[in-house]
Design a protein around this nucleic acid. Structure first.
Length: 483
RNA sequence: GGUCCCAUCGUCUAGUGGCCUAGGACAUCGGCCUCUCACGUCGAAAACACGGGUUCGAAUCCCGUUGGGACCA
């Protein structure tokens, strides 16, 4: 029987989770679900300077928001811990020591100055800069001399010659020439493990079966495989996916503006839209359908069908998906999601009639791309936000338009309270009396009633506002007063 | 400089040797719908980086060039 699939997502808490990392997490998560395996969250916080607990918490929050649940992680779940590298430092040292004892690693006493000089010289000769293996040849005596002098050292791994072959689940057969790789550091002078070393030890100890990560690690993989071999461990399967690029075709970073998941969440993007988008960049479901859910991904996603091209981030496509999901969402859930935006805009949600709120939302969801955009339209439905835009004012100034509004006002005044259905007949009456219809009627009406030039259908807004409020707003428009 | 990765419309992609006069989506432009915006709908413009092979036949396979990217330092 094949062992249980175990995958991991291993972010460094040196910043907010950005959409590229989120995509990696999602690939791992969906793969684990499909294989009925386990998803492990590991925090790579060996860089104490740049790591912070606040970022750890922010990352966890973003992952949860995306719908990712981990089976094991830094918050107590799982028995392969600890799940923070900062708590595993002594482990790395132990394994470093083991390699040293077995003669599979050596102490390197070379100073920063020597390394720097070496590098410059190699460069000037047109050679590739890499460690020349000087300390690999040190005698026992020389080593103990250096040690007693207290010369700081690092642990290096002798790479040797040959070719490393492996099968990448996305790229296929991979072949790396070792002649291009210098002896690399596994433990730094201050006792901290290098990335590749810590990564291999953790992945092995946590019994990771599939390492799914970005292409930026592709060329680290032969180094890691060498370490697995040195320990006599079975390497996991590897899958390297392309990195999301910015419009300038360099890897997505802060320079490209908003890239953090948290940012998109705050702006009012839905997790299902972001998820759909992240997979759409580089993957097409068998059905060729553009919209898909995580359930569908669980059934249909496969690493080998992922594109090997690095995709470019497109906010437009994300927005398109988001507006689609907003329109599809039911009003009750939308109201829950929208409440923070509404409150922030000064609408006291709990004091509003829920039925009214839901109706407002059912109209507005047709017009917005991101949740935060509702604010733009709030003035139509909430008196405390009502304001007349400059362009609307211009329209209202026209004498002819004033006449039309006066007519409407008069008709409303003489009509008994209108039920919802009778607005249509009322507008017909207005058409008859003023001789205006279509645009010339509706434009001033819209300007007067909503204070805006665009928005949902007037035929739906009017009954929602009710006769009384419509009259009140007409009056404001007629008197040319600022409300 | 070495070791690798990648290469179809502006963007995401379909395409795994004949079904391709290269399909879809976003964005763009135009028509329709319509009081506006949005939606919807119809249509237009838009790509196989280049050069060699292999083959009866190549976007698809091989090699080289070019371009972009990663890692190494």
């Amino acid at each position: 029987m094949a062992p249980t699939v175990r995958v991991r997502f291993a972010p460094a808490p040196t910043g907010l989770l950005h959409i590229g990392n989120a995509r990696t997490a999602l690939f791992n998560y969906v793969f684990a679900k499909r294989e009925r395996g386990r998803f492990i969250l590991r925090i790579e916080d060996t860089d104490a300077e740049r790591s912070s607990e606040a970022f750890v918490q922010a990352i966890l929050e973003d992952l949860r928001w995306l719908g990712i649940e981990w089976d094991e992680g830094p918050d107590g779940k799982g028995s392969y811990g600890p799940y923070r590298q900062s708590q595993r430092i002594s482990l790395y040292r132990q394994f470093g020591e083991q390699l040293l004892q077995e003669g599979k690693a050596y102490k390197c006493f070379c100073s920063r100055e020597r390394l720097e000089a070496l590098r410059k010289e190699q460069l000037s000769q047109g050679l590739m800069p890499r460690y020349d293996g000087k300390c690999r040849l040190l005698t026992r005596k020389e080593i103990s001399e250096k040690e007693s002098e207290g010369v700081p050292f690092v642990l290096r791994f002798p790479v040797g010659r040959g070719t490393v072959l492996f099968e990448d689940l996305i790229h296929g057969k991979m072949s790396f020439e070792l002649s291009g790789i210098g002896d690399f550091i596994i433990i730094r002078s201050y006792g901290i493990a290098d990335y590749n070393f810590a990564c291999v030890i953790d992945d092995h100890l946590m019994e990771i079966t599939h390492v799914i990560r970005g292409d930026d690690h592709l060329s680290n993989t032969p180094r890691q495989i060498l370490l697995y071999r040195a320990f006599g461990w079975e390497p996991p399967q590897f899958a390297h996916h392309p990195l999301i690029l910015g419009p300038d075709r360099t890897p997505l970073s802060k320079r490209h503006g908003a890239t953090a998941v948290a940012h998109y969440r705050q702006e009012g993007f839905l997790p299902e839209a972001l998820l759909n988008y992240l997979f759409l960049l580089g993957w097409t479901p068998p059905s060729k359908e553009e919209f898909f859910t995580i359930e569908k991904l669980r059934e249909e996603f496969s690493l080998s069908s992922l594109s090997r091209n690095a995709p470019i981030h497109s906010r437009q496509k994300l927005e398109w998906l988001n507006s689609h999901y907003i329109r599809k969402m039911n009003e009750n859930r939308l109201l829950t999601l929208l409440t923070p935006s509404l409150e922030k805009a000064g609408i006291k949600v709990d004091q509003c009639e829920k039925k009214y709120l839901l109706e407002v939302i059912s109209l507005l969801k047709e017009n917005i791309t991101v949740l935060s955009q509702v604010e733009e339209y709030l003035g139509i439905f909430f008196d405390e936000k009502f304001a007349i835009e400059e362009e609307a004012k211009k329209i209202l100034k026209h004498p002819e338009n004033q006449k039309i509004l006066q007519e409407i006002y008069a008709i409303l005044k003489e009509s008994p309270k209108k039920g919802e259905g009778s607005w249509a007949s009322l507008l017909l009456k207005v058409e008859e009396r003023t001789g205006h219809k279509g645009k010339s009627l509706y434009a001033p009406l819209r300007a007067g009633i909503t204070g805006k030039m665009k928005g949902p259908e007037l035929a739906k807004i009017l009954p929602l506002l009710g006769q009384e409020r419509v009259m009140k707003r007409l009056k404001i428009a007629l008197e040319g007063e600022d409300p």
